[in-house]
Design a protein around this nucleic acid. Structure first.
Lengths: 215, 215, 215, 215
DNA sequence: GATGAATGAGCCTTCATTCAT
DNA sequence: TATGAATGAAGGCTCATTCAT
């Protein structure tokens, strides 16, 4: 006679789990990606979960297996956009080049983001300057990260004697404001990509030496 | 026995035609004013026509006697905000002072707008960087007006030899981007008003002479 | 020139208001009546607000002008059923007849309720013995009212020496339980109305002298 | 390196056919038992198949290997409750004692059911007086069984000359109505168990000799 | 003109059920 | 056999807009 074994539960945290986790993560990304398109096109309120599901090629209910609700989906998307954008900016500033070159890289990086991830850029901006406090808080995190990165770059440049910064944070904000906002405004003004990129020198020059002539 | 009457509001319209037109305009302004509060607080979608009507002390249906629909109300509001903000900026730049002082005035004017008409500022920004194309187009008109005004100031300064501008439009955009975005970012970062105003000199100095030392 | 008068608000609590209030109350009743049919047929969860609106010949949204939500509609209905049923029972016991006759009246009254307001009866019972606490609490109120009324009848009968009640409340509950439950059970057992009414004497006799023979 | 394994439950089915059938039955019981808790707590509609599965320690889909759908699960549960309750009542009435004692046993048995199997009692009552026809039909079967059992008891008592019953069925329903409903009402009125049990004598006395004094 | 009761399209979310593994 | 990820029908509720008064 065979023994009757009864144990309460089994969970194996090995290969299968990892694969499942990977697939789950892949699906999350897929949903977020399609959601970004809708949110960028229509905004949080007008975007339709139903449509997002269709775009992602899944059923309505499936979205709720991956995100608690519409709001959480939006926040998750916002976080991924932030992560992705910050990576791009960090990569652009990774070199130890002269400050002029680094500022140009920064400008190009933002121009590239505005071009290659227009959805992300739009969503981020409307979250940052929109009215939903929770969304703004999340967007502000990215803003702070940007400033931190730029601050580091400026500190290095100051140590090298390339610039003079009495108030580092304020200067970093100034650089960010100018660069980001310039690219963004140029975008809504329908400047061509070429036009925008050609302005890089102008903007960097302005940051470094201003618009008043030396005397 | 007479009914119990409780009076809280009466409005009697007994004037002739011309006055009617004035009153109609006054009502439009009144509605727009209250609408601005709601739109700024909640955004276009979340704002509630019913609440706006209550705030304006009128019936829900009355709004539709003055505006075709919610969207038109929003656009009308946007136009009025633009007009009002542009007036402030124009007034700030009316003096024929030196460029440094004018740029400071510009900075102060934006800081003041962000402080005294936060609603308008928020609405304008979310329209500019939000997703609704019609709203964005309207906000861009203001952006262009700003640039025109700044361009004029820069042209005068160049004629006086105070600055050098190889590309006037681009430089104007640069000045606007920097000033407006700086004030805005400082706002979402919860900088105090005092802090922001103290940055005026820094920003103006940066615009004029940059952050790199003279050699 | 005419004077411009501006007062903040007017509310007249006279004829118009009263008429409005009457119409509002009429509409409430109409909705509740149709709702009762659906709730009795399908239960709270399966009942469909949409269908109730159709049955009442009004739009979906209109229901929400009269009731905060589905739950409140159900509770309002429950309260009205309770009020109505209690009136019937009170009327049946209003006479100062002998206890035998009064108990027969009570039995007939419940039989009539189960027949003429089957919806109300069903809804009340499923609320009383169902699982939703809020609904049960409301139904228990009616149960207590019933017991109070029956207690009064018993007290009068005891004063007249017709019955002996060592524990008045318990006896009242006993009388109610027997009468109501008998009628109800007979209903679910598909007894005919005639059959049920012919049982009145049996039940009353049992209440008064029991089923064991005098010795 | 080996995967990390966490064991909480194992079930090994290695026995031959007959045992499989037993285990299948055991699983059905297990599911029904957990389902009863949820159905009693939340009612048919609000009860959640997923939660029931979790409570039973099995997968959601597994339930559908044992029951066609939610409705069938509920009915199976209802049948088991009926069987179980009827057993308790039958056991209570198994003695050949005098009718007074048997009626007291009946009362105690119902009081015990309401106390020890409150879930079952609630489910049965809401099925009996609820709105779903299929459920009511199933509950009525139990009602009929109750009446049959009580009828037998009454017949024996009549043969012994302890009681007089012109209409046996009606009297049985009367006894059942009174006993069951009394216990149930006392329950929703939050009477304590002690209080309820102390009422046994009162109720039985009322059944036997009524509430009017002998003359 | 002014009103607000009435409307119904529209949408997020739940959950019983299925089915590939 | 057991599982749970996926599905999509269904429904409560909101709110911009209309229109009879």
């Amino acid at each position: 006679m065979w023994p009757k074994i009864k144990i309460e539960r089994i969970e194996v945290y090995a290969m299968p789990k990892i694969v499942d986790e990977q697939m789950r993560e892949a699906m999350r990304r897929r949903i977020i990606q399609r959601a970004a398109g809708e949110f960028a096109r229509l905004g949080f309120d007008q975007a339709n979960i139903n449509v997002i599901a269709e775009q992602a090629g899944i059923g309505k209910g499936t979205i709720y297996l991956y995100f608690e609700n519409k709001r959480e989906l939006f926040l998750a998307m916002l976080r991924q956009i932030a992560q992705s954008q910050l990576s791009v900016i960090r990569a652009a500033l990774a070199s130890q080049a002269a400050i002029r070159e680094q500022l140009e890289q920064l400008f190009y990086a933002f121009a590239q983001l505005a071009r290659d991830d227009r959805d992300g850029f739009n969503v981020y901006m409307s979250a940052l300057y929109g009215v939903n406090r929770a969304f703004r808080a999340e967007a502000v995190k990215l803003l702070r990260d940007y400033i931190d990165v730029i601050t580091q770059v400026l500190e290095q440049a100051e140590r090298r004697g390339e610039i003079v910064c009495p108030d580092m944070k304020a200067t970093a904000l100034l650089v960010l404001s100018l660069t980001e906002s310039y690219v963004l405004s140029a975008g809504v003004l329908d400047y061509s990509e070429g036009e925008i990129e050609r302005h890089a020198g102008l903007v960097v020059e302005a940051i470094l030496h201003g618009i008043a002539p030396l005397k």
